[in-house]
């Protein structure tokens, strides 16, 4: 949204005047629940109030005056990664994420402060280098002056989509997100460790939640099918920070695949960053004496889960041929 749009957005004076226009759309929701089948928030917390259907219900309750907004309700409304798996599954055609965005604007205007799944900046760590600002497609990050005239990086809580690209790019680690959805760097580090150490997988696949993961999820039951690979759902390939890839290699993975959307298909333009980042990373590991083939980037469009499965199988075969990374190579990563 441009500056003019933002000015218009904040002209309102309370109530639910933006979201109220959706009352009939909310009535069109038959509450079948198909929207939460692939919802990452529901998969993380298992409360129905975390599902898209639940959030629409809460918004309906607020705009019809049946319930008043509370901090907890507002927090729920601000938890969404905008992956749109919900709207794609809704044959009633309810514009779920549009409704959510307008409800967010209404609630912010009413003075609610929220954490949600949006980016959070640690002012003590932030050096205001502007890298995050230039990376954010939604113009959600902006340097503003506080009351004392001190500059600080701020997050537009309505525009932030929680994609986490800024988090992966921040050189000082000043940006974080809500824990509990397996999206923060520490959580992802733990997941990498768990997959390699406990599940003894040789390949880590970071799969984009937008393009390929829904299909993968629908084509197999990962907990029951024994595979030589482990899949970590990433909210965007662009949020796979370089240290996560190196982490996987250090923990003993034979290879790492990052599966993202093809050029021009990424909602966040994160795939371009991934491509540049992985070229650099391959050079780095080559310098350390590790075969660059240990890192692979693949593009998949929405619905190409069969292609992803084949690409994983082919890569596993290749890795089987070259075997595990030798110990001497691994020592070099730590210097």
């Amino acid at each position: 949204m441009g500056i003019l749009g933002k000015l218009f957005y904040f002209k309102g004076n309370g109530d639910f005047k933006r979201s109220r226009k959706y009352e009939q759309e909310l009535n069109k929701c038959i509450r079948c629940g198909y929207c939460y089948e692939l919802c990452p928030l529901f998969k993380s917390f298992y409360w129905e109030s975390d599902t898209p259907r639940g959030k629409l219900l809460l918004i309906y309750g607020m705009i019809t005056g049946e319930i008043k907004p509370t901090q907890k309700i507002v927090d729920k409304i601000f938890q969404c990664f905008y992956c749109k798996n919900c709207s794609d599954n809704c044959s009633a055609g309810v514009p779920i994420t549009d409704i959510l965005t307008d409800a967010r604007a209404d609630l912010i205007e009413q003075g609610f402060d929220v954490e949600g799944t949006i980016a959070k900046i640690d002012e003590d760590l932030c050096s205001i280098c502007h890298i995050c600002e230039s990376i954010c497609k939604y113009e959600a990050l902006e340097v503003k002056k506080d009351k004392e005239g001190k500059e600080k990086m701020t997050v537009d809580k309505i525009e932030c989509r929680g994609c986490g690209l800024c988090m992966a790019a921040c050189p000082t680690g000043a940006i974080s997100q809500k824990e509990g959805c397996e999206i923060t760097l520490p959580e992802l580090h733990n997941k990498v460790k768990e997959i390699i150490k406990e599940d003894k997988k040789k390949l880590i696949v970071f799969a984009c939640n937008w393009s390929v993961f829904p299909g993968m999820q629908l084509s197999e039951s990962p907990s029951l099918v024994k595979t030589p690979y482990g899949i970590i759902v990433s909210m965007c390939s662009g949020r796979v920070a370089p240290e996560l890839v190196l982490d996987a290699i250090e923990e003993g993975a034979w290879g790492v695949m990052v599966a993202g959307c093809p050029p021009e298909e990424c909602d966040h333009d994160g795939n371009y960053k991934t491509r540049r980042r992985l070229v650099l990373l391959k050079n780095v590991i080559k310098e350390l004496g590790i075969d660059p083939k240990r890192i692979r980037l693949e593009w998949f469009s929405t619905g190409e889960s069969a292609k992803l499965s084949k690409a994983i199988d082919d890569y596993v075969k290749e890795l089987d041929k070259i075997g595990p990374i030798k110990k001497i190579e691994k020592r070099k990563i730590g210097g």
Binding site: G33, W47, S49, L57, L58, E66, I67, T70, K72
Partner: peptide, 15 residues
Amino acid sequence: VSDDIADLYVYASDA
């Protein structure tokens, strides 16, 4: 366990 309105209101209906 929850007795918060955010949950009660959602669990008040089905399809």
